[in-house]
């Protein structure tokens, strides 16, 4: 006797099924909490200490400056400390976003290519589900896995590095954060299909999109330092706008607002636009990939 299942139910099951292996599979190997949660903190701590070293040298200069009155010196030192706190906070937020970006690169964009190498791709292509559900499940599972690292970074920022945030609008903060994540993972879904077409170049492209994107998106410094033109161009990667908006919401008074790119509202609007754009492009590139698979019959050939 055959059982009819609605397409919505099938796709929801697919989403959960693909997310499940990431959530549960990872928990079966708890070593990843140490490797993915704690070890990467060391790299972030380095950037924190760089700003603290800059701050210590600046304060030493202020202390030794004979031209300053005691009041002026105290005010200058307080301002330097506030700046260091904000910049360390920038690094902590950048470190949080690093976790998601690395996940997008290595566990979203490269994943279909990896599935092909593992021999799973043909099974996915044959399964009676939307390929968007598959990618959506990968994204949800990836967000869960990565959240551990992101939360660890935030907690370390507050309790180890002593960063103090000034949260003024928690709803806006949540909206910006989730819009950034959806846009980022939408981009990952789009790249997943495109990477599949480019064999080993895809792997190297992922490696190439680490430091240059950290640079162009201002992961460890205010992105406006790059100059407005470069910063706007870099905004095609949602992390740049997301970070800028999050920093505005958490450090509202930083340097008189001179380093912000756009207003938070506008950045959220653009991020929402990027969400739609990348999800549509992901759907189109999946369609293109499927067409290619049927026409050339080589999409599941490994080691190309």
């Amino acid at each position: 006797m055959s059982e009819t299942v609605s397409p919505v139910a099938v796709n929801l099951r697919s989403v959960w099924g693909r997310a499940y292996v990431r959530i549960v599979g990872a928990n079966r190997e708890p070593s990843w909490i140490f490797f993915e949660g704690l070890l990467p903190l060391l790299g972030i701590a380095v950037y924190v200490f760089i700003y603290q070293a800059f701050g210590a040298r600046a304060i030493a200069t202020l202390v030794a400056d004979p031209t300053l009155s005691d009041t002026a010196r105290a005010a200058a030192i307080a301002a330097a400390q506030a700046n260091v706190n904000a910049l360390v906070g920038f690094v902590v937020l950048g470190g949080t976003m690093t976790a998601f970006w690395m996940n997008v690169l290595w566990s979203m964009a490269s994943q279909l290519y990896w599935e092909k190498e593992m021999g799973n791709l043909q099974l996915y292509m044959m399964a009676p589900m939307s390929r968007m559900s598959l990618l959506g499940g990968m994204a949800l599972g990836g967000i869960f896995m990565t959240s551990v690292r992101a939360v660890t970074t935030l907690v370390a920022g507050v309790f180890v590095f002593g960063v103090s945030f000034q949260l003024t609008d928690p709803w806006m903060l949540m909206a910006v954060f989730f819009a950034t994540l959806v846009a980022l993972y939408g981009m990952g879904m789009m790249l997943a299909s495109l990477y599949l077409l480019y064999g080993r170049e895809a792997w190297n492209l992922s490696a190439l999109l680490e430091e240059p994107v950290f640079l162009a998106s201002g992961f460890y410094f205010p992105v406006r330092i790059l100059g407005p033109a470069v910063a706007f161009a870099a905004s095609i990667i949602p992390a740049a706008l997301g970070l800028d908006a999050l920093r505005q919401l958490l450090f509202p008074g930083f340097f008189g607002g001179q380093f912000w790119l756009l207003s938070v509202g506008l950045e959220l609007t653009i991020l929402l636009g990027l969400c739609v754009l990348f999800l549509v492009l992901a759907r189109l590139s999946l369609g293109y990939m499927e067409t290619l698979a049927k026409r050339e019959g080589r999409l599941t050939s490994r080691h190309q």
């Binding site: 950037y47 760089i50 700003y51 800059f54 701050g55 600046a58 330097a80 700046n83 910049l87 640079l215 201002g218 460890y220 410094f221 205010p222 330092i225 790059l226 340097f255 380093f259």
Partner: peptide, 10 residues
């Protein structure tokens, strides 16, 4: 750029 940011601000 981290240095530039700090040098500019500080």
């Amino acid at each position: 750029l981290m240095y530039v940011a700090f040098a500019f601000i500080g």
